[in-house]
Design a protein around this nucleic acid. Structure first.
Length: 872
RNA sequence: GCGGGUGUGGCGGAAUUGGUAGACGCGACGGACUCAAAAUCCGUUUCUGGUGACAGAGUGUCGGUUCGAGUCCGACCACCCGCACCA
């Protein structure tokens, strides 16, 4: 019966089953059609999906379903980013094995995702904690080791002495471990690194060739890589101040053009020269110790005052050996960047200026701003960092800073100091190599052995995988692999003697750096099947949160380069198109200090004043801000509840409506209800009209006049518009168009004459188009409508409707007519009317001749198809 | 501090990139149907003045370019995001 309400609870599982049985979404690499790879960032199996997932996967599914309808061979896989700390935390807290916890979560979340009706190829599913997956990751590691892209070095880490583990920077809060609350120590450990800096230049340069990435993300990555070109510049220390002959200090500078403005050298507290000076100066030793202390808490640096300590050393100016500058140890110089030493030019660097003012050092300007008088110009408390003309600088006078840079570089490259060039050109990056060692259990074991005779030895490929032991205890802090009774014991592949396994596991960012490649051949013995990887990659449209703008995306870009070097694929960039979606946010509610979940709150509006009460007690509740859904603020809405009461289509439609997908979307109960009303309205419109039509209009060509033509125009225009909008990922606009179509069809169908075969056929065509146009967004309802309309097959397999171009053009155009730029009326003309026809018609309009009052217009602007402006 | 972005009705947001500002949705108000309610349908809804046709103002603020500016240019204000002693 057509008058029945649409019931998603019964309809949605039915269609999901039909899709699965038809294996509609299982992709064959060799199938017909141009390839299109849509991927959303795979989820961490935390337990349940949240609204952010719903939005992310709804966005991707629209693209996947639309492209499929357009005839592309679409790859749209799903998997699980399944290694990581929460599983270990759960193990410690609930005595459940990380594997069991993880796989149970995956089970739950897979079911939830399936209830969304996503067009995913589940046959390619994997979790990164599957042995089959991390086995191949270990192969990659060995390949990278072989190519010199993985190596070990000593590095400082944040060490939590209570949990006995290494913490990431984000896990250190105010110098304390986020879990234990213990003071975090800086420890030097030998760690594994990937040589991402080998590709620093390419990673930065290639960003310019990713036009389908958000500008913002490209910029963030560029800043992160932080390329700067400069000189390594050696300064001799004056022999009478230095403890040994030929002593020198090397600085890195990007501004050799300001060398004549130098007034001091500053070295980091950890610099060898500082240590040397401190040997004979206890006060300096104390200063260095103080720097180290404040150095650990990163937040303190922000406000920390620039402090320095003057050593006895003096350096000789590279361009004037009669000129000496003092050497300071300063708290603002970083040992990790450049050489750990800088020369200060206070006039043209704010930081150097602050320092110079504090210690009374000379401030000599050497770059003259345009239109400034060289005699009068001086620097106050603001350094001049812009372009200008070099002056006060001997042979550099009159040059631009760029020219002066070159001149200094050339001269000093050719000047020997203690038998080597005084300066060499050098490109420095902010980017550091990627430390991948984690002292944890639930990660991919690093497949190497430590042999007392042979040292660090890679495990043999045929001995892989190095599997995680299953019998593990989390009773004690520290890495369970370290204290496992037998797991570490192994045989050295080189000498056959006893050796012990590496107990570090890999950062989980490694797992997610190549999963998109694995999806192209998820069951291959090798990490990839190069032919499949090359056929499918790059990912045409990648969709995920902005929070991964830097690390995940940069690491993936690095991995593709490393995998190319190792012969696993032949690809320059992993993601051709990137889209970063906004968050799902919700109003928060609180009762005093306690946060209250939206489900427990009733909202009322009286005279425009919204107020909230707790449903159970009737107590008033304070309405808080609109914030990211989070458990701590309890402003979460469970997708399961929404799908159970409204259906997946309503949830999908809602998260796609209104807000542009790159902005935050505010979840509101009223909005969901509006979406659900629309679902029902569509159902009613289609079923009632179909019933009215009966068999009328079947296998008849739609009419081309009157109402039939009007109906066809509406439908064809919507198809064209929605297609454009989806291509541009403007789903909110696509939805507005569908609303418009439904509003207009509803009114047109009111006048429908079922006896007119042309009209009936036009109505049929419009409804069939409507079903296909909503299919990417509301796939279940689309199937139900498709079925009601008596169409063959599944809507999900139906091609995108083709548009008749003749129906997009108008026969007449209505031009707004302005007088002096203000709209005063309309003029309707045949679309074919020329400029002179329009001019004549405009001048004969009543309100135009009234405004002209017999005068000729000063100007008559006619933009055909757009507007007319009469200037009087 | 540096870099980037955004400011449009009560709210989320449109505006074909210089051409009718406010599409579409939410909310609100009015009406129809109903004994009544829900659901549904129809209408109104930027502000000010007017019963009204209509008039005036209006896209953060001030100025400019243009026949015409939400859109371009300059200055300022507010908010958001990223980076932060990177030499």
């Amino acid at each position: 019966m057509a008058s029945e309400r649409y019931n998603p609870r019964t309809a949605e599982p039915k269609w999901q089953k039909a899709w699965a049985e038809a294996q509609l979404f299982e992709t064959k690499t060799e199938a017909a059609g141009e390839k299109y790879y849509v991927l959303e960032m795979f989820p961490y199996p935390s337990g349940r999906i949240h609204m952010g997932h719903v939005r992310n996967y709804a966005l991707g599914d629209v693209v996947a379903r639309y492209k499929r309808a357009k005839g592309f061979n679409v790859l749209h896989p799903m998997g699980w980013d399944a290694f990581g700390m929460p599983a270990e935390n759960a193990a410690m807290q609930n005595k459940v094995h990380p594997a069991k916890w993880t796989y149970e979560n995956i089970e739950t979340m897979r079911k939830q995702l399936k209830s969304m009706g996503l067009s995913l190829d589940w046959s390619r599913e994997f979790a990164t904690c599957d042995v089959e997956y991390y086995h191949r990751q270990q192969m990659l590691f060995l390949d990278m080791l072989d190519k010199g892209l993985a190596y070990r070095k000593k590095s400082k880490v944040n060490w939590d002495p209570v949990d006995m583990t290494v913490l990431a920077n984000e896990q250190v809060i105010d110098g304390k471990g986020w879990r234990s609350g213990a003071d975090v120590e800086q420890r030097e450990l030998i760690q594994w690194f990937f040589k991402i800096t080998d590709f620093a230049d390419d990673l930065a340069a290639a960003l310019d060739h990713l036009p389908n990435w958000p500008e913002k993300v490209r910029l963030m990555q560029k800043n992160w890589i932080g390329k700067s070109e400069g000189l390594m510049l050696r300064w001799a220390l004056a022999a009478d101040t230095a403890p040994e002959a030929d002593a020198e200090v090397t600085v890195f500078t990007t501004r050799p053009d300001t060398l004549f403005g130098a007034s001091f050298i500053a070295v980091a507290a950890d610099h060898p020269l500082a240590a040397k000076a401190a040997e004979s100066d206890p006060a300096l030793a104390a200063f260095i110790a103080e720097c180290r202390k404040t150095g650990t808490s990163a937040e303190a640096l922000e406000t920390a005052e620039k402090k320095g300590y003057r050593t006895a050393f003096e350096a000789i100016h590279p361009l004037d050996d009669s000129w000496r500058v003092p050497v300071y140890v300063a708290n603002f110089v970083l040992m990790e960047y450049g050489t750990g030493a800088v020369f200060g030019c206070p006039a043209h660097d704010q930081r150097d200026l602050d320092f110079a003012r504090k210690y009374g050092l000379p401030v000599k300007p050497v770059v003259l701003p345009p239109h400034e008088d060289p005699v009068a110009f001086s620097v106050g408390d603001k350094a001049y960092t812009d372009d200008g003309a070099i002056y006060n600088s001997d042979f550099l006078d009159g040059k631009t800073p760029d020219e002066a840079f070159e001149a200094v570089a050339e001269k000093l490259e050719a000047t020997p100091l203690f038998g080597a060039p005084q300066a060499t050109r050098k490109v420095n990056y902010r980017l550091r190599d990627w430390g991948v060692s984690r002292q944890r259990y639930w990660g991919c074991p690093i497949p190497v052995l430590h042999c007392p005779r042979c040292g660090v030895v890679p495990e043999k490929r045929q001995n892989l995988p190095v599997e995680l032991p299953k019998d593990i205890d989390f009773d004690k802090p520290g890495n369970p692999l370290d204290r496992h009774p037998t797991w570490r014991k192994a045989t050295c592949p080189q000498c056959g003697g006893d050796a012990s396994r590496e107990t570090d596991t890999m950062d989980t960012f490694v797992d997610s750096s190549w999963y998109f490649a694995r999806f192209t051949a998820p069951h291959a013995d090798e990490p990839t099947e190069p032919a499949a990887a090359n056929a499918w990659l790059p990912v045409d449209q990648y969709i995920g949160g902005i929070e991964h703008a830097i690390l995940h995306l940069l690491y993936s870009r690095f991995f593709v380069r490393a995998m190319k070097v190792c012969g696993h694929l032949d690809l320059d960039e992993p993601f051709k198109g990137l889209f970063t979606q906004g968050m799902v946010v919700h109003e928060s509610y609180r009762d005093g200090r306690e946060w209250v979940a939206p489900a427990d709150v009733r909202i009322e509006e009286i005279d425009g004043q919204r107020s909230a009460t707790r449903i159970s007690t009737g107590a008033p509740i304070e309405i808080g801000g609109i914030e990211k859904m989070s458990k701590s603020k309890k402003n979460v809405v469970d997708p399961d509840d929404i799908i159970a009461s409204y259906g997946a289509d309503t949830a999908r439609w809602f998260v796609l409506s209104d807000s542009p997908p790159d902005r935050d979307v505010i979840w509101t109960e009223a909005g969901v209800e509006g979406a659900h009303r629309f679902v029902q309205r569509l159902w009613r419109l289609v079923t009632e009209t179909a019933e009215k039509l009966g068999g009328a209009g079947q296998s008849v060509a739609p009419g081309d006049t009157g109402l039939a033509r009007d109906i066809r125009k509406l439908a064809h225009r919507t198809v064209a518009g929605v297609g454009d909008d989806i291509e541009r990922l403007a789903f909110n606009k696509a939805i507005a168009r569908v609303h418009e179509l439904v509003n207009q069809l509803a009114s047109a169908f009111g006048k429908l004459d079922v006896g007119d075969a042309g009209q009936a056929a036009a109505a049929r065509e419009a409804l069939s188009m409507l079903a296909r146009v909503i299919a990417p967004m509301m796939p279940h309802l689309a199937e139900a409508l498709w079925d009601e309309l008596g169409e063959a097959g599944l809507a999900a397999a139906a091609p995108w409707p083709s548009v008749e171009a003749s129906l997009l053009a108008d026969d007449t155009v209505t031009l707004p007519v302005q007088i002096n730029g203000k709209k005063r009326g309309d003029l309707t003309m045949p679309a074919s009317a020329g400029k002179s026809d329009i001019e004549a018609a405009v001048l004969s309009l009543d309100f135009v001749s009234a405004a002209l009052a017999g005068q000729a217009p000063k100007r008559l602007v006619v933009v055909p198809g757009r507007i007319v402006n009469v200037v009087v």
